[in-house]
């Protein structure tokens, strides 16, 4: 069956989004048609406003409303520890802790030659430039995957000669979890990185 042209166009645009296949795109499109006019207008405006008013923070490359993001402009946060994350959303996870008082750096991806991504495609140069100003530790908080481990190792190789401490988030048992339910890969990591008590 052929869809009316505007509907086909809407489906085609939605399909371009990550994680949205042809079926989901159709479902979303039909849902949008049933929405109140006001809600549709708000949705389309928020898309444009978000796109127009957001940019990358000059310092940490986080998504920001201005030249500097809120975290980088916060005078209560220290400059000497930088936590490196793969994606901007990872900052939200770290910030929930209300524990880390340093600043962040967003790489916007991980090394991944299969997808054509080398250091030049990531915000690595921007990170190295920041290190001149009295940074004492870089915490690499990339995902515990092969790509995350490789990226962490690569960063350590670049940063360690500058005599800055490079650390990596530990991986192991989920706290409060039961040994019986831990997946084997996690349990193996926990065993490998066990520590004396």
């Amino acid at each position: 069956m052929q869809f009316a042209r505007p509907l086909a166009e809407l489906i085609a645009q939605l399909e371009k989004l990550p994680g949205v296949g042809p079926k989901s795109a159709q479902r979303l499109a039909f849902h949008i048609l049933r929405m109140a006019d006001d809600d549709v207008r708000r949705l389309s405006e928020s898309l444009l406003v978000a796109k127009r008013s957001l940019r990358l923070c000059d310092v940490c490359q986080n998504i920001s409303e201005g030249e500097r993001c809120e975290i980088c402009s916060d005078p209560r946060r220290t400059d000497d520890v930088i936590c490196v994350v793969g994606e901007a959303r990872d900052i939200t996870a770290m910030e929930r802790l209300n524990e880390f008082r340093g600043k962040y750096h967003v790489l916007h991806g991980l090394l991944n030659p299969i997808d054509g991504i080398g250091p030049e495609q990531l915000k690595v140069r921007e990170l190295i430039q920041r290190l001149a100003n009295g940074v004492s530790e870089v915490i690499v908080a990339t995902n515990p995957t092969v790509e995350g481990d490789t990226t962490a190792f690569y960063l350590a190789k670049l940063i360690k000669p500058l005599e800055i401490k490079v650390t990596r988030l530990a991986h192991g048992m989920p706290v409060g979890g039961e040994l019986d339910y831990a997946d084997t890969a996690t349990l193996l990591s926990a065993l490998e990185y066990r520590r004396e008590i």
């Binding site: 090394l111 030659p113 299969i114 250091p119 490789t150 990226t151 190789k157």
Partner: peptide, 28 residues
């Protein structure tokens, strides 16, 4: 890591890839 390194080897036919990048995959 092998798939990634093979992709990297092909990438290196086209453009410069530093030893540090190679070593980072090889270590894994």
């Amino acid at each position: 890591a092998l798939q990634q390194r093979n992709a990297l080897l092909k990438m290196a036919q086209e453009r410069f890839v530093s030893d540090e990048v190679f070593e980072s995959w090889e270590v894994q």
